[in-house]
């Protein structure tokens, strides 16, 4: 029977309380959000924290709001809430695309957006989605709050910049002014519904007169640094959003990722997927933005 090892349990009543508990117990304490990554790891005894600091009572960290030209998502927002949020979907179709294929509806009821990002699994879907959107993470610590770019948030597999006595509290996504034509999308290949990705790509593109004015490409499960296809983004900037360039972007993304072979698929296949999915997801994002260059939109 796979069950967790002994652990102490503390229920945080406020962000300040949570931070105080984390400070008191030190690095052997773990934040417990939805627990849908942490508890499975504890059952397998891959994680054996001494203390759990349960933040599920911090309902003020559970929100999806528009504040000026930013969408703000509280860390404790459940996957299901993000999927159902019209506000999020209106501005960031990519988030709905991604949430629809993360785990399954029951896991999504309880797993949190912040927990996903902090887990920093190299196959996490939201990490790629937020990287594509060039979001910003807000982290609270003993010394106050700081902001970190989504693209600098992950420092390695299962590692983030969040320190042991810190808490991720929210994610902010910039909402572009209406005259910029933008679109976003997310595509994932999994072996089965509810499975982690074999490979997945997210893209957000903004066009000015058919020329790529800004672009974000996120990749997951394929060994892309910071979940980003930076070289492909660089290539597309300032170029027409046409088929040829999308295909080239896919190739560049494939060249620069470092997938590893595992039972989800061999590295050559995953590299191929990057090529294929990057081109496809850019196409999908562009069609939401108003179409490919050279084609009726």
């Amino acid at each position: 029977m796979q069950v967790p090892a002994q652990v102490e349990y503390e229920k945080a009543t406020s962000v300040q309380h949570a931070l105080a508990l984390l400070a008191r117990y030190g690095p052997e304490a773990k934040v417990l959000a939805g627990g849908h990554s942490l508890i499975p790891m504890m059952k397998l005894r891959l994680a054996q924290p001494e203390v759990l600091v349960d933040i599920n009572g911090l309902t003020d960290l559970c929100f999806i709001d528009r504040v000026a030209d930013e969408l703000r998502i509280g860390t404790l927002t459940r996957h299901a809430q993000l999927l159902e949020s019209e506000l999020a979907g209106e501005h960031f179709a990519i988030l709905h695309d991604a949430e629809r294929v993360i785990a399954d509806p029951i896991v999504r009821n309880w797993g949190t957006v912040g927990g996903s990002l902090c887990q920093a699994d190299p196959s996490e879907d939201l990490s790629a989605a937020f990287a594509a959107m060039k979001g910003t993470m807000v982290i609270e610590g003993p010394g106050g709050s700081r902001e970190v770019s989504a693209r600098a948030f992950h420092t390695g597999p299962y590692e983030t910049v969040v320190g042991p006595s810190e808490l991720l509290t929210e994610i902010r996504l910039p909402i572009r002014p209406g005259h910029q034509r933008g679109g976003s999308a997310y595509l994932k290949v999994a072996r089965r519904a509810g499975d982690w990705p074999v490979g997945a790509a997210g893209a957000a593109v903004w066009l000015t007169d058919g020329i790529v004015a800004d672009v974000g490409i996120g990749l997951t499960a394929v060994g892309a640094r910071h979940f980003v296809a930076a070289e492909a983004e660089e290539f597309l900037l300032g170029r027409p959003a046409d088929e040829e360039n999308l295909a080239r972007a896919g190739e560049i993304a494939a060249e620069h990722c470092r997938p590893v072979t595992d039972q989800r698929g061999p590295a050559d296949y995953k590299r191929h997927l990057v090529r294929e999915l990057t081109a496809r997801v850019l196409r999908a994002a562009l069609s939401r933005a108003g179409g490919l260059a050279g084609r009726p939109s």
Binding site: P4, Y9, K11, L32, G35, H36, I39, P40, K43, L52, D54, N56, A80, D104, I106, V107, N109, W110
Partner: peptide, 21 residues
Amino acid sequence: GACVVWLDETPVKSCTVLAAM
């Protein structure tokens, strides 16, 4: 999902929730 129960108003996998929660 053999373990699905409702926690308040939503179904959860009760093998992945601590009773303490």
